[in-house]
Design a protein around this nucleic acid. Structure first.
Ligand code: SF4
Ligand code: SF4
Lengths: 138, 138
DNA sequence: CATAAATGACACCTTGAGGTATTATATAAT
DNA sequence: ATTATATAATACCTCAAGGTGTCATTTATG
């Protein structure tokens, strides 16, 4: 594992949704998304279904079907995506990974780390798909 | 995986070394460390050997043997430990996980994320084992 | 209706992190 | 020398994330 790196699945979700945010009315199909983003084809198929279940996109089945963003891109925040894709996010509180801390006085990392996490949360909560819609990388 | 959480191994390394930093002259044996920290016994054994190879501690074999911190605790920074235990750290640069970015102008996350990472790096580089030696959690 | 083109469902494979089991080696104490 | 007690080495097990393969279902269109 590598610290400060999102899971592949999270990165993929960010890529997919920020790409689809470029035109929030358009119906994208998987092949089109696959062309643009570097996501393994069948895994992408699976993720699209998951993102549909999560409610970020809606799917139209059958011929000429595809996916489109389900809500206004300004309303979908990166934090919401992260939480949906990685439910364990924010589960760990202690820098040292202790389940329950028995220190009388918090260690030197406690507050510093809380601040860092809050900072990151604010960034992710403050950034919407509309803000990153240009991330196509073609 | 869960974002913003160190790997178990990294957490363990932090715990072990910050515990041993309480007395940098003392020879700790595995059983003693196992008593205090919540690290699976045999995995702890393995980690101790790895930390020895990494040079953070020295081992004395044989009866009455054990481990002790190899350098001044003020000189061992958390960043150094993290890098030794998690070599992939800092490998990923792009927020979206792209191997090579083709954007003409960097996306909105680029600078923000660079700042966050720099911030974290500064904290980890600015904190030594001496600063966290009280983290015993018994 | 038949077909083609799209998504959905489900089972399986692979890989690395974390963890376990066993045996080998070193050394202080008697 | 023998024994007890410590670490070292090595091989194996487990589980979830990431990834693949195959077939089923939906629906526009001729
Ligand atoms: S005080 Fe330190 S050891 Fe205790 S929970 Fe906070 S970070 Fe963890
Ligand atoms: S500009 Fe955005 S997409 Fe490009 S490397 Fe930086 S973070 Fe990644």
């Amino acid at each position: 594992m590598s610290f400060m790196k999102f899971s592949k699945t999270t990165e993929y979700a960010f890529r997919i949704l920020s790409f689809m945010a470029q035109d929030e009315t358009k119906l994208y199909n998987v092949d089109e998304i696959f062309e643009k983003l570097r996501v393994p084809y069948r895994y992408l198929r699976k993720l699209m279904t998951n993102l549909t279940r999560s409610g970020f996109i809606v799917s139209i089945q059958g011929k000429n079907g595809g996916y489109k963003i389900s809500r206004k891109t300004e309303e979908i925040r990166l934090l919401e995506i992260l939480q949906a894709v990685d439910p364990e996010y924010l589960s760990g509180k202690c820098f040292f990974g202790f389940d329950n801390c028995a220190l009388q006085v918090p260690c030197i990392m406690h507050d510093q780390w809380t601040i860092v996490r809050t900072n990151i949360n604010n960034i992710l909560a403050g950034t919407s798909l509309a803000d990153v819609k240009q991330t196509k990388n073609d």
